[in-house]
Design a binder for these strands. Structure first.
Lengths: 337, 337
DNA sequence: ATTCTATTCGGAAGCGGTTCCAGCATTAAA
DNA sequence: TTTAATGCTGGAACCGCTTCCGAATAGAAT
């Protein structure tokens, strides 16, 4: 379980000093003479002493650990965010604890953080945090940064999903499409609903009728959420229900990628036969030529991490609320020749 | 920092018992009467007591935490592995600590684990662990599972990269290609070298000449490693150097995806003008129609996690060595019409 | 030479739990 | 009825480090 199990007691004895002195050396306190420091350092080296992390944490009452909680940290979407988070966390000497909060039952998984002392701060990226959950987060009484949810009492980074979706669909309209479908995940996740609103709004603005048949959710429970499989299945159903569709707006890039696969297999050309628009602008979308809405996930991750560090250092900082402006990325899949 | 700061002392006092009894209730020890248990549970509820994680760890001498160390856990390749790891870890009550070990200087970052008590076990997925590093890992004196490196003294899951690459290139040969290029990352990573060996072997077997011009590394340092950018740049250089190439074997799917993007922009048809073969078989490759070599990353992650749990429970288990058989996945990008 | 002030260090009390050991009250066995 | 076994519980040591406080030493000031 450990490396030799050398404690500061052994070091102190070996160096002929008190343990408090060893501790001072470890935390390079200024109030220790050069000579004794030398002795202690030598003893540490000789004995191969390594401090015990938990003991230090207990004594100092902090864990040097920051947790990031998401629905699924291996999902591509959150993966992009983590790229921005991880280095910042690391550079400031914190460890990174990753946890999935099942969106069905975040309450239970959130309990883990209620264990006192387990993390110094929490980055919570759970779309659609409700009041009940927010209440629990408050109880944490620790630095918390919210991502994807706006709250006045916490630092929060959030998007206007409806505006982004509107922008996306408007782009399709401008390309001359009049029958525009939408692909949504099987279970309407918290992020998909506002995107559907934006979709409707764009149609309204363009004077196009809203046809419920054109919104197609993922079909099987097995492929719930934003999965390629869901997109793959959904577009087939959509085309069956509405063969005259010439463009689709997918609620996420992942769905769009599944749709592209189905279209290819059906022998349909993109964008000639069907224009495809995604949402999230994953890194890979750039290489697929997939048009999308950039949410600046990397940047958000970076700023959120920076902010949480700042807050750890100064807990009474006024909370900040940052709205991220979505950005339209036009690429091959929606560009008319 | 905590929730009310209620300790077992308060609980004990409130319930009128000794702290040892409270502790027994917390760890549901059988040797506590039903009546007292009720009292204690009630007090815990009333006071809103939550155990302090660090204190428990220190006393129990374990951290209930498992760390996974990779070159970059946000890289798609390791991401697939993590999908297999995370649930297993979680279900067994462990927390997951993710760390990047920069391959330039893994020594320094490995030091973190040398802090006694910080993790109970380590999943180390660092291709090309050398003897020096292995020596340090040994010093950890903790359950360690190696992924991607074979060692008799540790549990290890590894691949025969050369065999996989040979299989991939042989497939291209069978499709009738005689001028087959290879795309490698900018800095020859530990995994790319054996794949290049397999490439040569396949050519040799087919009686095709080996032409060094046909192996193209990534160009700029900025896009080192397995990045889409590297593939994007490399294939352009390759085609310039050897315009007669009709098929390429990319050392990773990520490189291949970059190459596909470049080909599309150049107006080249895949697979008609250029067949493309990847390596890793990321989930997304299925949807891109990208032929690849499946390394069963998810499965490896799953098994490695299972094994590390097993080893934590029984440290003197004989170590196992599992070689993963690569599997050829033929898809659109290499299929002759 | 004496007093005062830094500087450096040792001692000891936590941090918040776990766990061993002993003691007491019960109950079963003799 | 006495003795032995059993079930619960309290007390105290301990996990390994931090940090406050007071003491000792040395150098500066008088």
């Amino acid at each position: 379980m450990s490396i030799g199990k050398v404690t500061i007691y052994e070091v102190a004895q070996h160096a002929g000093v008190a343990i408090s002195t060893v501790s001072r050396v470890l935390n390079n306190s200024p109030e220790v003479s050069h000579a004794t420091r030398q002795k202690v350092v030598a003893s540490i080296e000789v004995l191969g002493f390594r401090p015990h992390r938990m003991a230090k944490m207990l004594a100092q009452q902090n864990s040097q650990t920051i947790s990031v909680a998401t629905p699924s940290f291996t999902a591509l979407f959150y993966n992009e965010m983590l790229k921005g988070v991880k280095d910042t966390i690391r550079e400031n000497g914190f460890d990174l604890l990753l946890t999935d909060l099942s969106s069905q039952n975040p309450h239970e998984t959130l309990t883990r953080f209620f264990q006192r002392g387990s993390v110094d701060a929490l980055l919570l990226a759970l779309p659609g945090l409700d009041e009940k959950l927010l209440y629990e987060v408050r109880l944490l009484n620790a630095p918390v940064v919210l991502i994807g949810t706006r709250s006045d009492e916490f630092d929060s980074f959030y998007w206007d999903d409806a505006a982004g979706a509107e922008m996306a669909v408007q782009h399709l309209v401008e390309q001359g499409h009049t029958r525009i479908g939408m692909l949504a995940p099987h279970e309407w996740s918290e992020d998909a609903a506002p995107r559907a609103d934006g979709y409707r709004r764009a149609l309204l603005n363009a004077g196009l009728p809203f046809d419920p048949l054109l919104i197609q959710e993922g079909i099987t429970i097995k492929h719930a959420g934003h999965s390629e499989e869901a997109g793959y299945e959904a577009i087939q159903a959509l085309i069956k229900n509405a063969p005259d569709v010439t463009a689709i707006f997918a609620a996420s890039d992942v769905l769009a990628i599944g749709a592209l696969a189905a279209l290819r297999e059906m022998g349909k050309q993109v964008p000639e036969d069907m224009a495809v628009m995604g949402y999230d602008d994953l890194k890979i979308s750039r290489f697929l030529g997939l048009s999308s809405i950039n949410q600046k996930m990397f940047q958000v991750g970076l700023e959120a991490a920076t902010q949480v560090i700042r807050r750890i250092n100064d807990p009474k900082l006024p909370s900040i609320q940052r709205k991220i402006e979505p950005e339209l990325q036009i690429r091959m899949t929606t560009r008319r020749k």
